[in-house]
């Protein structure tokens, strides 16, 4: 579990976004929401993917289509709490903190929150069946380009 999260963070922070969809099972759910929306049962996400293909499309759009100033993230991912184990899947909640570093060197605390994950074993490795990114706040500074 710790290895999965560490590899996940390094893939994004080291700009190996092409590796990011590989952390997910197929089918999967990846979405980014806020604590307020989550509490109220609001289903919409800032990003929303219910297939690995949609994750690949997100990466392709960031590489080929979308315009945003050069930036990187630094993820700090906390310890996962195991909420439930059912057969081959595990439900966990893991806190995170993301600093965004802009091209001029400016660093901002960009997002904090928790990952609500459902993990499954696929081909001998743990994968995310679901990763619901619940940001503590619902405010995004300027834009959200890279995945959290």
């Amino acid at each position: 579990m710790a290895k999965l999260n560490a590899d996940y963070a390094r893939a994004i922070d080291d700009d190996r976004l092409e590796d990011w969809p590989g952390f997910f099972a197929e089918p999967c759910l990846y979405t980014i929401t806020s604590a307020d929306n989550h509490r109220q049962g609001m289903p919409a996400g800032l990003m929303y993917a219910d297939s690995r293909g949609m994750l690949q499309d997100r990466v392709a759009a960031l590489r080929e289509a979308n315009i945003y100033e050069r930036q990187t993230y630094r993820h700090l991912i906390g310890l996962p709490a195991i909420l439930d184990e059912k057969g081959t899947s595990v439900r966990t909640e893991t806190p995170f903190l993301v600093v965004r570093i802009m091209r001029d060197g400016r660093m901002d605390l960009f997002a904090t929150g928790r990952y609500l994950d459902v993990l499954v074993e696929e081909a001998g490795a743990l994968r995310f069946r679901e990763r619901v990114v619940v940001c503590d706040g619902g405010r995004i500074d300027t834009l959200l380009a890279l995945p959290l």
């Binding site: 979308n66 300027t142 834009l143």
Partner: peptide, 20 residues
């Protein structure tokens, strides 16, 4: 709608540029 909402908002495929 949940899938197409990827198009808009702060992370939208066709709106993120409007943020910057």
């Amino acid at each position: 709608r949940l899938r197409q909402l990827n198009l808009v908002g702060p992370a939208g495929y066709v709106s993120m540029e409007d943020g910057c």
